[in-house]
């Protein structure tokens, strides 16, 4: 609670390399979950994190990564459900939090699954 921003930064540093270098076999794809995740992403996230000008979340990530990682979340190769969940629940910097009364745990898991699963994006 003392310093969420620092905690999230730590989560980011720890998770990003692990996620991108994971070697374990890909789990079975739950297409229904991914479709649901896509719908929820478009509803809750895309107004800020969509492609093109006028999307403040994408703009913030462009500045943060300076091209080292894609600014559009759907293009990111290294996201995991836990990573997505931490930012959605707590927010970071300019990004607001989202409570479970807005996006419940099941919906958050679907969004996390969608953003972590590159092929169908």
């Amino acid at each position: 609670m003392k310093n969420i921003t620092s905690s999230l930064a730590l989560v980011f540093m720890l998770l990003a390399p692990l996620a991108s270098s994971a070697q374990s076999p890909a789990p079975a794809v739950d297409e229904t979950l991914l479709r649901r995740g896509n719908e929820l992403y478009q509803y809750w996230c895309a107004t800020c994190h969509g492609r093109g000008p006028g999307h403040p979340g994408t703009q913030a990530l462009e500045t943060r990564y300076g091209g080292a990682l894609p600014a559009v979340l759907e293009d990111r190769p290294n996201l995991t459900p836990d990573f997505v969940g931490a930012f959605v629940r707590n927010g970071i910097s300019i990004m607001p939090f989202f409570r479970k009364t807005e996006i419940n745990d099941e919906e958050l898991a679907a969004i996390g699954a969608y953003l972590s699963h590159t092929p169908i994006k």
Binding site: C48, G57, I92, I94
Partner: peptide, 12 residues
């Protein structure tokens, strides 16, 4: 889109 304002200084 108006939330772009928050990127002006950054840091929330």
């Amino acid at each position: 889109t108006e939330f772009s304002l928050y990127n002006w200084r950054g840091g929330g």
